[in-house]
Design a protein around this nucleic acid. Structure first.
Lengths: 131, 131
DNA sequence: CTATTTACCGATTGACTTAGTAGGTTAATG
DNA sequence: CATTAACCTACTAAGTCAATCGGTAAATAG
């Protein structure tokens, strides 16, 4: 299941792409339009800045701004960043400690195949596909 | 992420298919072969019986037995039963209360497309593909 | 210079889920 | 009738999720 972190991140990016006038957009406006708690969005948006999806600017006239063209954001990248991992099973996560059963595991190929399907699907979708 | 409930259920079925000699297999044997706590497997296997994946028999000489041919078990059915739902987002789960934003939601088609991909993938895989 | 706006930051919380464990009772058979 | 095995209810420790609370730092408009 995709959590609110990933889902809200995508909604924020869509909102920003559709309301982009070149200047910074205050989070307050995005939260109001999307009907999401501004306080909670702060946490999410902070991680998006850290992950290079957005740039922020403090003070009056500040807010957040996209730092790429909408077609250069893939959904897969957004979800990987916000969800930590899209891996189907723990042993296929990037930071997984090697599973001792891996060589004899009869289900691993199944999960690996599904993981590839998932990866290819989400990385083939871009922000522009959602506008 | 697929939890142990779904993963162990598949392993149990694989184990039973590979060690099928026509009679009932005690859970103790499966747990020992798979290196999984028998007590925990009890919970999982109980749900598998309730879901029509297995039949159980009490008493001496009892245990569990497959109730179909291995090719008639789809991975999708197993996971749907054990994980409750394979839905990517809550609003696409079978028991979901309708989302008021659904008609205007710009991401719903994305999740729906991915859900279909997931469903088709797992229902196309059968127990025989894992032996 | 100062009031306002806005991002940024850390800690906490309540509800829920996960992966088990503990301790039995019932059913069947050799 | 002793043994084996399924079946059943309850509990728990740890972790995650979706927030909320109460601030501090930075930038600008007037």
């Amino acid at each position: 299941m995709i959590s609110t972190r990933g889902r809200y991140a995508i909604r924020v990016l869509i909102d920003m792409a559709e309301n982009d006038n070149g200047s910074y957009i205050p989070l307050k406006d995005i939260a109001a339009r999307q009907g999401i708690s501004k306080k909670y969005l702060e946490i999410i948006v902070k991680d998006m800045v850290a992950g290079g999806l957005l740039v922020g600017a403090s003070g009056k006239g500040g807010g957040y701004k996209l730092c790429r063209k909408p077609e250069d954001y893939s959904v897969g990248e957004i979800l990987d960043l916000m969800e930590g991992s899209l891996a189907t099973v723990a042993c296929l996560a990037d930071d997984a400690e090697p599973c001792p059963r891996a060589s004899e595991c009869q289900t691993l190929p199944l999960w690996a195949e599904y993981d590839k399907l998932t990866h290819d699907f989400f990385y083939s979708k871009h922000l522009t596909d959602l506008l």
